[in-house]
Design a protein around this nucleic acid. Structure first.
Lengths: 170, 170
DNA sequence: GCTCACTTGTTTAACTTTCAAGAAGAGGGC
DNA sequence: GCCCTCTTCTTGAAAGTTAAACAAGTGAGC
């Protein structure tokens, strides 16, 4: 079998101790930070971090509205998840749906004034939390380094178009 | 009001453009990576990343068993979440519960042979996924830097004992 | 115009996570 | 022993997420 697709125990390059430590520190930190911010936003804004991110995206978009698919892509979530999320935000009165004029299949998620208010009221606390948990603890060099590293990782994981990882097909 | 606890819009130190970019790159990368690994493990091992982490912790523990609270702390999840998770893993036959001999309230989560097999079979693929997504893309310097940064962040977010953030009480 | 493959967004059910409440035992002080 | 408080773990309901299936619309090719 020349082209094994799955790694087997024998030919696996296990993580070195150093890599192991790095990976665990990563998982540990990322878990704690997400939990921390989720709790902070649940308490102060009454919604999870992902939902807050949706409002932010809408607030930044022209006319405070986006197509569902576009919003899903920017927020890096599935359309299904977005459907549920918008349903909830709509119930809160923070988002409203509108039909897309140019595509009858389409829906626009629109940030309501009330939604904007929530954002305006809770953003300072959220920024403070991010600052306190992240930026206040890192030197400028570390911040720069973190930015570079995360950019690289994100690029490598970008949901690829078909064949993006099959160079011989391009 | 001398001691404002919540930040207001006027005195908020918003993120600079640079910080903004760093923060978004972080969120972006972390989201994509967790999704990627969750999907990989769901497909190859039939469980989410967190559950896999529980099996790993048990496999490393003496006699492949741990008290529920201890396991919850190592995995950084709540005891409640762990109860549900172990119930599911028990249904799969990968974990078994035992009474703790020294404390009648206590329960031990024990990795079964079957659970160990699952781990042995799926670990190579998981390590490969982590390598491909993370280590293969970073220089040794970046790996070192990432480790340091994540260690700092994790320390700052450690679930604190009462008063840990109140220096004048210590 | 018609067809066919693809896109868009929603829905359902199964599953996971959170939150609040509670049963049961441990352990110190008296 | 008895009381009181704290710890341990579980439970049930509500909220959120996922995967698969589906209705409706688009658009290219003929």
């Amino acid at each position: 079998m020349v082209h094994m697709k799955t790694a087997s125990a024998e030919d696996t390059r296990w993580l070195t101790d150093e890599e192991q430590r790095t990976w665990r520190a990563y998982m540990h930190a990322v878990t704690l930070l997400e939990d921390h911010l989720d709790r902070q936003l649940q308490r102060d804004a009454g919604m999870p971090h992902v939902y807050y991110g949706l409002l932010v995206q809408l607030a930044e978009a022209p006319c405070r509205r986006l197509r569902m698919t576009e919003l899903a892509m920017r927020a890096k979530i599935t359309r299904s998840r977005l459907s549920h999320a918008v349903a909830r935000l709509e119930k809160n009165g923070w988002v409203r749906r509108e039909d897309c004029p140019s595509d009858k299949r389409g829906q626009l998620a629109v940030l309501t004034d009330e939604g904007y208010e929530v954002l305006a009221r809770t953003a300072p606390g959220h920024v403070a939390a991010v600052r306190q948990a992240l930026f206040d603890r890192l030197t400028p060099e570390q911040q720069k380094s973190l930015g570079e590293i995360m950019t690289i990782l994100a690029e490598g994981l970008q949901p690829k178009e078909a064949g993006a990882d099959l160079p011989w097909l391009r």
